[in-house]
């Protein structure tokens, strides 16, 4: 972590990060975001998201603004309008839905080839969700099916999660927390050099 971030942390200012939460419908995006919120703010019933919703939560050093996009086919064309403002992407995959793994891959490829994303080194966190389901695929298998090894120019990380219990979410968020700050740190160095 950069000095600036530490300083900001001591002073109580937390750096704001815009995160896009993407993934097919019924993959558990809203459930994951809900689980990351403080326990008193969590909703009990999760219903399919219409359009998108904006959620905020804080970790030790960062303040996340999450655009929880709807994954339904008819709303997926909304995603690209938020690519510009996103500083990180959470891509949620339903590990139990083997049939639609190709659809997830197709949407991921579309995302990675979008001009607003293609040339940005934004971190992508993959969450292989629904690990509690009996015949769910492992995170390794999911990353194989999505050909994640082909992503060379962006930092990425895959976590096996169970959003109902909250397993694996913390690991993912910690990775995400480390990553944008690394980008910020290098920016700080650039600014500080003339001084």
């Amino acid at each position: 972590m950069g000095l600036f971030d530490k300083l900001a942390g001591w002073l109580g200012f937390k750096k704001e990060v815009n995160v896009l939460c993407l993934g097919l419908d019924n993959s558990g995006k809203t459930t994951i975001i809900n689980k990351l919120k403080p326990s008193h703010a969590q909703a009990q019933d999760i219903v399919p998201t219409i359009g998108f919703s904006i959620e905020k939560f804080k970790t030790s050093s960062l303040s996340f603004t999450v655009f929880d996009m709807s994954g339904q086919g008819r709303y997926r064309n909304l995603w690209e309008h938020y690519y510009k403002s996103g500083q990180a992407v959470i891509f949620v995959i339903d590990s139990a839905d083997k049939l639609r793994m190709v659809v997830a891959k197709e949407e991921l490829d579309t995302l990675l080839n979008h001009p607003d994303i293609k040339h940005k080194r934004i971190p992508i966190l993959f969450l292989a969700n629904k690990m509690d389901v009996r015949d769910a695929l492992s995170s390794v298998k999911v990353s194989q099916l999505l050909c994640l090894d082909n992503i060379k120019d962006k930092p990425w990380h895959i976590c096996a999660t169970d959003a109902l219990k909250g397993d694996g979410l913390q690991e993912g968020v910690e990775w995400l927390q480390g990553n944008p700050s690394r980008v910020c740190a290098s920016m700080c160095v650039c600014v500080c050099l003339p001084n």
Partner: peptide
Amino acid sequence: AVTAICFGRYGRED
């Protein structure tokens, strides 16, 4: 060669 065709909503995909 195809013997039967069906198109519609399967799983969650229309």
